[in-house]
Design a protein around this nucleic acid. Sequence first.
DNA 1: TTTTTAGTTCGATATTTTGCGAACTAAAAA
DNA 2: TTTTTAGTTCGCAAAATATCGAACTAAAAA
Lengths: 155, 155
Amino acid sequence: MDEAERIRKQKELIEFIGVQQEREGFQPVTARIMGMLMVMDKEEYTFDEIVEEMQISKSSASTALKNLELRGVIEYVTYPGDRKRYFRFVSGEIDGMIDEMKKKMKQHAIIIHQILDLKKDPNSRNALFLKNILTGMEFFMLQLDKFKEEYHSRP
Amino acid sequence: MDEAERIRKQKELIEFIGVQQEREGFQPVTARIMGMLMVMDKEEYTFDEIVEEMQISKSSASTALKNLELRGVIEYVTYPGDRKRYFRFVSGEIDGMIDEMKKKMKQHAIIIHQILDLKKDPNSRNALFLKNILTGMEFFMLQLDKFKEEYHSRP
DNA sequence: TTTTTAGTTCGATATTTTGCGAACTAAAAA
DNA sequence: TTTTTAGTTCGCAAAATATCGAACTAAAAA
């Protein structure tokens, strides 16, 4: 695979990640900036480089970058004697991802609890099924911490 | 909590679940139908009951129900001598949820592999971080099957 | 056979979201 | 002090999406 081919494929992948991240609730431009910061060989971009590379307005870039920072997806660094910000992807750890997963699951569990609390018949089809799921989720969440330990002490 | 209060809270919860499911990519009406089928005491609704209860057009109901069925969220049953369909929430099992999770994670892993394959420098900041995540994800996916076993053989 | 039921399909309309440009700001440089 | 840089904010227009209504269909009932 030659250089041009590789770069073409990178662009394609950015687009694919873009579409995927849109489904996760990011706006189109935002999703593609994420993709770019993950995929490209250059891994730190200034505001103007992003505007240039993505062919978007400064306002779109501003909005997107603020959003990504707020969500903890990107961060920026600065270098002495240069007042530009250099935006880059945050390099999270596996532990952080597990915690994230746990948090999300806990929120789901709360909702399920609320549904159950409001059921007239606690033995209705849905109620029983939801109780079942809840038990599974609780067991699963307990396993997650065990997983972290095992992962770090693996051979 | 009296009956009226309970029902009011159910409606509130449907709205909350609706907003939540919109973020997961469902359209507003679709998301609220999901909520309704999970939360309400009546757990099987005909097409016309859904139209009535949600105050939506038949076409919206049709589109939403088809979508939910396609995604495996709801199903319908029929009763002899009654040609209406009775729509209800699918009662998935914990195993199905785990498989779902694994499938999603596998897709993510494929993307990460692709990013890595296209990096010029395999030791760049992002490349190293992505490799790290990949290792974690692979370990995690191995654990998932173990989890299923343990869950089923729990005391 | 005709009518009714239980939905489906499709084009039009309403609503929401997205991205832009112009004007603005705070800090640094000249 | 004035100018430039590096963005931010906000109202608007365009694009995308959601929902609707009207016409349609296939199967069952009359």
